[in-house]
Simulated scan of single mutants.
Amino acid sequence: MKNNSQYIYKDGKKLRTGYTTGSCAAAAAKAAAWMLCHQDICNQIKIDTPKGWQLILDVQKPTFNETEAKCCIIKDSGDDPDITNGIEVFAKVTFQETEEVTIIGGKGVGRVTQKGLQVPVGHSAINPTPMKMIQEEVRHVIPYPQGVQVEIELPKGEALAKKTFNPRLGIEGGLSILGTTGIVEPMSQEALKDTIKLEFNIIKEKGYKKVVLVPGNIGEKLIETFFNYKGENFIKISNYLGYALDLCVALEFDDVLIAGHIGKLIKPAGGTFYTHNRISSTRMEILTANLALLGMANPHLIEIMNCRTTEEAMTIIEREGYKEIYPLLVGKIVDHCEAYCFDQVKVHVALFSMDQLLAKSNSVLEMFKDEQN
């Protein structure tokens, strides 16, 4: 078996990366497609990931006949404490008359029942990046115009989903197929905080006086898309906003831009600086309170409180004409974060949905302009 892992070294400890359920699904689908075409056993399969790394994965439980092929990949989460580590991710591939690659969720893959997620209501909980990976890898083996159906199965998915937040998010019957990079990076708290600190030090050594904080890949991509900015001063802070702000003060940065999805950034609008959902689950409370201050009627406030995600709540906000909530939240995020820093750092904020810039500080564009000069 090829070693697909890379490592983070810190204080003599070696933390191993893994690969996502999305990568597993794409690899299983590609291997099954290859077996269906060649009518032979496939023992290993190579795929590309959005991270830019190639994976060569062992194929488990391969079976095929003239009409379908099926196999699985074993999920490896590396040193990340992931509940899905070691699960079997199956793909079954069959030919179909239409020209598309149709991807569906089978046993153990959840189904979306609430608005506000990246997947529409009624569809299998297979996120857009894994969906694209599966389509592309299958097409490497079975070119257009031959149609293919791919069914992803997680035999232990339904049982494991009860130990996740999926039911609260409106995903029923199983787990989600996830991953924006295809790679699982270790989430050990101390190791992650050490890595964040190291990145701060590197950016400081490069001479930057301003830094961009994003929770993860989504925030970075949104900044690149909406502001055409690709500086070297991005830091992914995960849930550690307070820790990152402390470092901004300690290293004497002049300005910080905090950018990301409203589901994360609404929390510092209520004075919360560790944003993990297990610790801080007050998104709807903060949103409802601020909408009440703007005069939203009580029946609509009740609707907001009953939403499972901020994306779902945004449809009500737009319907009722309360978009002024977004600049209000930006102002409160700025105020709380600057107070947290004892006004020693100038804070800027860009607040996004999954595909829109909702609101920003007036000074954001000036910050980018200065950095690019």
Rank of each mutant, 00 (worst) to 15 (best):
D58L: 06
I47K: 04
Y326T: 09
E136L: 10
T84G: 01
N306K: 12
L265R: 04
I218P: 00
N233Y: 14
I152W: 04
L245A: 11
S361G: 14
L357I: 13
K236Q: 14
A289R: 10
D254T: 11
G331P: 02
K61S: 08
Y243K: 09
D343M: 11
K14Y: 12
T49C: 02
E100H: 07
V148A: 11
T113E: 09
A359F: 09
G295P: 07
V89R: 00
N277W: 09
Q44M: 10
E68W: 08
C337H: 04
C307M: 01
T113H: 07
G216H: 06
S363T: 15
G106R: 05
P186L: 11
E220G: 06
H336F: 13
E324W: 03
C72W: 05
Q135E: 14
I203D: 08
I333C: 03
R319T: 11
A27I: 06
I304H: 10
I134C: 10
V59C: 06
H123Q: 15
I87D: 04
L358F: 13
I56P: 00
D48A: 08
K332P: 01
I279N: 06
I47S: 09
F165A: 10
K92F: 04
I126F: 10
D76W: 03
Y322L: 09
F227C: 08
C307D: 01
A313Q: 05
I333Q: 04
V364M: 06
K162W: 01
Q96F: 15
V349Y: 06
C42I: 13
I258D: 02
D194Q: 13
D343A: 09
R16F: 00
L15H: 07
G122N: 08
T310P: 03
S124G: 14
G106Y: 04
T282C: 12
I177Q: 02
V148Q: 13
H140C: 14
S281A: 15
I74P: 07
D370W: 05
E153H: 15
W53E: 05
I325M: 09
E312C: 05
I103R: 00
F226P: 03
I317L: 09
K360E: 09
C24V: 00
L222Q: 11
F95R: 09
Q189R: 15
Q189M: 12
R278V: 05
N4K: 12
T94C: 13
T275P: 10
C248R: 03
C248H: 01
G147K: 14
V334Q: 15
A191Q: 08
L287E: 03
K323R: 14
E324F: 06
M1G: 14
K2M: 12
T288D: 02
V109A: 08
K369V: 05
I177T: 06
N298S: 12
V211K: 05
G122T: 06
D355L: 06
K346H: 15
I258Y: 05
L265I: 12
A313E: 01
P167W: 06
C71W: 05
L329W: 01
T181G: 02
N373H: 13
K115L: 10
T67K: 13
K221A: 13
I203V: 14
L329A: 03
G12C: 04
N127P: 07
Q189P: 01
E100C: 02
I152Q: 02
I103A: 02
E158K: 15
I45V: 15
M354V: 13
I262C: 07
V334D: 07
G216S: 07
I56V: 14
G331S: 10
D194R: 08
P130F: 11
